[in-house]
Nucleic acid binder design. Structure first.
Lengths: 247, 247
DNA sequence: CGGTATTTTGAGTAACCTCAACTGGTGTGG
DNA sequence: CCACACCAGTTGAGGTTACTCAAAATACCG
């Protein structure tokens, strides 16, 4: 199996290339992307883009987790999305960012200046196609989230959240035995960010987690390390509420 | 101003062409689209696509309103999106539909068989580009909706809903004097669909609407015809709650 | 080990839901 | 033309969920 052209060094070793919008690009296209790309490191808590301000870069998340937040005029906050490694950061085809992007953990980014990116996208339809696929997946996820926010109770919301994190962690780690029904992972978010993601308060999140521990659905080591003995059970709980909430 | 090629009859008179994914396509591309297109009429209440079932067509909404719903295993329902004339119907690049699509009013569609559409999309990057633009707009709207569902109270939700409908009605009618602060429109949805869209119950929607009437924010003629004396006021209420709910 | 931030727990409350009854408009049939 | 049923919407009373505010417990970090 020969490649007609060697990949640029960075891209060749890029762990998320195939899953990102760069996946399935030809060596030429990759080369063009690499020409305009630069790396950037952000510490946990750093703001990458401001809501309503001009975006000067788009890019791929190489490592870490980014949260996308919207804020109401009176200060109420909500997390509209989380980005994991291989996700695309930035709102293409628009000058201003519709949300604030903030590093939740330390983050490594592979960024493209907006103008250059848009130029290249016009030239390479494959890139557009990949971006479209990513955007459609994001839209599906967002639809699922509206169902969660519109119709699920606090317990189901937290269960759904854990499920989502477990899956993304599994995707990244890729070590999973498909027969394995148990899982373990580290929460990238604190209780208050989880609350902002689920449309709840910190206290409510905490209560539901406590309840899950009591019920044996999960066990915790410290505040962030979660073990799930049965993902199957968690899956059921995420969709079908245990309708007694007696604390 | 000459056109190098005449447009197909249907497309030439199509009222929503420029706003739809067909907008900005060349005469050749339009011709290709027209080749595979067929019209379909759906009566109010008709199911256009079933959740989880194979999509055999994509297409443009020419007329009427379509609701996209998701259902939980225990029957709880939620509307994840509304489609108006010029919106694109169907989840591209996927075989199964992630939601149920149902005609809310009588609906006129311009449909493309899935396989044909995908073939043409590969050939004409402009089409992909338009679809990407539409999908990104939908994603923005969905993000706004998660903010609504996650953080707004019942009153703000109904205000936001009226605002959205007013804007879409205005877009379509296109008659608006931009200085005009008042508006009038017909609700495409009944109370219970509004509730499913806003994550509330019929009763809660009804109470908020009653409150708005009492406060002079809107007036009704029948159950569906709404008049808004001041859109500016409605805009404020959609984001900033009047926190007393005394009935 | 001590200081700080985060999380948990508790008690009381407000917002929204549930259930049930009522209203008003529409359509049908005697 | 009126009586009746039917449906969507409204209103009311009471219950439940999740929120608010406050304090205690725990985890994290130098």
């Amino acid at each position: 199996m020969f490649q007609s052209k060697a990949l640029p060094k960075h891209c060749d070793v890029c762990t998320i290339r195939r899953r990102s919008i760069c996946g399935a690009l030809s060596a030429d296209e990759i080369e063009a992307m690499n020409q305009i790309a630069h790396r950037r490191h952000c510490e946990a808590g750093a703001v990458i883009m401001h809501e309503g301000e001009k975006q000067d870069c788009f890019g791929n998340v190489l490592n870490g987790v980014v949260k996308l937040t919207k804020t109401m005029t009176d200060g109420r906050q909500h997390i509209v999305g989380l980005l994991f490694p291989s996700d695309f950061l930035g709102r293409a085809m628009r000058v201003e960012s519709p949300y604030r992007a903030e590093a939740v953990t330390d983050v490594e980014l592979c960024l493209f200046p907006r103008a250059d990116f848009e130029r290249i996208m016009l030239r390479y339809p494959d890139l557009q196609s990949r971006l479209l696929a990513h955007t459609l997946d994001e839209l599906d996820a967002c639809h699922d989230w509206t169902l969660l926010l519109g119709r699920k109770n606090a317990f189901e919301r937290v269960a759904s959240f854990l499920l989502m994190i477990a899956r993304r962690a599994q995707d990244l780690g890729c070590k999973a035995d498909p027969n394995e029904d148990s899982a373990a992972f580290v929460l990238p978010l604190g209780r208050s960010d989880i609350a902002d993601f689920l449309g709840l308060t910190t206290e409510s999140v905490s209560r539901q987690i406590t309840k899950m521990k009591r019920d044996g659905v999960i066990s915790l080591h410290g505040n962030r390390e979660v073990q799930v003995p049965s993902m199957g059970q968690l899956l059921k709980l995420a969709d079908l509420a245990p309708c007694d909430t007696r604390a």
